[in-house]
Amino acid sequence: MIKNQESGRLKYLLFVPTMLVLISMTIVPFIFSLLTSLTNYKATEPERWSFVGLDNFVRALTDKDVQISFLNTVIYVGCAVFFEFILGILIALLLNRKMKGISVIRMLLLLPMMATPVAVGLMWRWLFNTDFGIFNYYLSAWFGITGPNWLGDHALAMPVVVLVDIWQWTPFMVLSLLAGLQSLPDDPVEAAWMDGASPLQLFWHVTLPQLRPVILVVLLIRMIDAFKSFDVVWTLTNGGPGLSTELLSLRVYRVAFKFWETGYASAISWLFLILVIVITSQFIRFLYRETSK
């Protein structure tokens, strides 16, 4: 009996180092950022700070640069996730069949995901370079057209950034949806074929309803990840030209580490967190409602 009690205590004691690390790396910075957001703290002047209450939050909500960054983030996440899903489901349907070399194709699909974001951003920055980028070269060589300044044009910079994100993360959609397709039961599909359903009817009325929980989970994961995007956009455009591609993550970085307004940056981060929580909670609620049907 005594040995069992000692082993039980030891079991809980073994959790203590892990819990201390988790607390020091997550909860402590979490609380510190909340407290900092209520002050005018600056990293360059740590001794000259004062409590300002909700002034930083009011300032962030009325700041035009933050509003532009917010709109850019919504456009970026919405467009990227939408097109990644459309391409992902189409490619997954094509790969969900027996064909030669299918395993090689699936392996090649992993390559964009395996590349580091900074490397991806630098690679595409060279490809879209105005003077010696490959796209402008072929526009000139094949069509005699002078290529545009892809990353320096206000109208083109955001589509380019979205395109790069689609290139890197569509494989995630493909592999996730393909796994979902291969896990579906065959009986409903065979029954629909016997009833004379067309391929489109089969997909819309049989496959898609069964795949809906997988779709919602994949969209949720990808959306949360897209909200955190920083590396690719930073290396591609540095948030420019102007503020045309500056996301909220870049705005927080710029305010915190270029203007050194740590308190204000913390307030923007908290508003960013609230935005993500609201959107993801609605997705989760919709997911539970759909899966409970």
Rank of each mutant, 00 (worst) to 15 (best):
I105T: 09
L236N: 06
A191E: 11
N96M: 06
M223S: 08
Y76W: 15
P148V: 06
I166V: 03
G121W: 15
F286I: 04
F203E: 06
M99N: 04
L178C: 05
I27P: 13
F32A: 12
N238C: 02
L127K: 00
S229L: 12
S37G: 03
L211I: 02
V233G: 06
I27Q: 12
F230K: 02
L38Q: 03
V81R: 03
L110A: 10
L71E: 15
V206E: 05
Y12N: 07
R106H: 10
V28L: 14
W234K: 03
L110K: 09
Y76F: 15
P213S: 12
N4E: 15
W167G: 14
K3C: 01
G8T: 01
M113P: 05
N40H: 02
S266E: 05
F30S: 11
W150T: 02
A155E: 07
D63F: 02
S33G: 08
V120S: 05
A179C: 11
N96A: 14
N4F: 14
L271W: 09
L110W: 03
F15A: 13
L93S: 13
F15P: 00
T170D: 03
L95G: 02
L219V: 04
W260A: 01
T36R: 07
Y253F: 13
T62Y: 08
I268E: 15
T39S: 02
G147A: 09
F259P: 00
V164Y: 15
N4V: 11
V189I: 15
M123S: 10
L20S: 11
G8R: 03
